[in-house]
């Protein structure tokens, strides 16, 4: 493999990892703060992509689709927390698994009635169309570069909020030790709702930004959900930094697995997970048992 091809694959891996991070960071925080395992997280990724397709087709603008899709996801997340998720606090994992599985069935049906079951594509914004010519035969789409940059900015924003704001401090403390934060008299009601809604909005955002790269199709959430779980298991539950490491590890493994061992590409990610589990059963940055 020459250097240019390697560079292109590396960029692909990083871009994939960054998108995964957006989905997985929401998942890991929702578990860390709310103590809820949400199998329907992938469904929101899928719904985000479909909403983007619908808004882009209706308005002709990718930007409206981006902002509108995230806003809708945030509001839906707030409502979901209020109506369903709230009832799961303190329930056992089994109830959470079943309830979020039921939500997947319901959300799939909602998607079917709102958007149908067709496969769609979304056009990237005009000035991000086209590609950069690298060599005579190789070129790299501008939009993929923009996705890299955009996801990186969002990731930095997540870290900045967690690091420097009061709500970020509560979230970090809660992920570390939920009971202790409650004992200190900090109310989780509002924080929980925002964390859940932001998690959903991030999943939808990831679905929206990848819509122009991949296609929009009904089963897209399932694959993403499983990979996000792998990311969370790799990084350690509740750890956003762990999710970043896990997401990049999965992105690299998947992309280079496809290049070097095409026959085993579908299992390479899980083999890496198996190895990490042998080494650190609670994830790379995980400290506690949950």
């Amino acid at each position: 493999m020459d250097l240019v091809t390697f560079g292109v694959q590396l960029l692909n891996a990083v871009q994939y990892g960054l998108v995964l991070f957006l989905v997985a960071s929401g998942l890991t925080l929702v578990f860390g703060i709310l103590g809820v395992i949400n199998l329907a997280h992938g469904a929101f990724y899928m719904l985000g992509a479909y909403t983007a397709f619908w808004l882009a087709a209706a308005t002709g603008s990718f930007w409206i689709a981006l902002v509108g899709g995230v806003a809708i996801a945030f509001v839906v997340g707030m409502l979901m927390e209020d109506v369903f998720v709230r009832r799961l606090y303190g329930r056992d994992h089994l109830a959470q698994v079943l309830l979020s599985f039921a939500l997947i069935l319901i959300l799939d049906e909602v998607r079917l009635h709102l958007f149908g079951k067709d496969v769609h594509s979304v056009a990237p914004p005009d000035f991000l169309q086209g590609s950069i010519q690298l060599t005579d035969t190789l070129s790299y789409p501008v939009y993929r570069l923009a996705v890299c940059l955009f996801c990186l900015l969002v990731a930095l924003a997540i870290f900045a909020v967690l690091r420097w704001t009061k709500i970020g401090m509560v979230v970090r403390a809660g992920a570390e030790n939920r009971e202790m934060v409650r004992a200190l008299g900090i109310s989780f009601d509002r924080v929980s709702r925002y964390v859940f809604a932001v998690g959903i909005a991030l999943a939808a955002l990831a679905g929206i930004v990848v819509a122009p790269i991949s296609t929009v199709y009904p089963g897209m959430g399932d694959g993403m959900l499983i990979l996000s779980f792998v990311v969370v298991v790799l990084g350690g539950i509740g750890s956003v930094a762990g999710a970043a490491i896990g997401a990049l590890a999965v992105g690299l493994t998947d992309t280079f697995g496809k290049v070097f061992f095409p026959a085993f590409s579908s299992v390479s990610v899980y083999l890496v997970m198996a190895l990490i589990l042998l080494w650190r059963p609670n994830g790379i940055l995980g400290r506690r048992e949950v």
Binding site: I37, L277, V290
Partner: peptide, 27 residues
């Protein structure tokens, strides 16, 4: 492998390994 983990990790890990077999036959 999965029983090295607890609670919610166990759920996620079994889910992931199960899907590994699914993708092995689907892809």
């Amino acid at each position: 492998l999965s029983l090295r983990t607890r609670g919610v990790y166990f759920i996620m890990v079994t889910l992931a390994f199960g899907q590994m077999l699914f993708y092995l036959f689907a892809d």
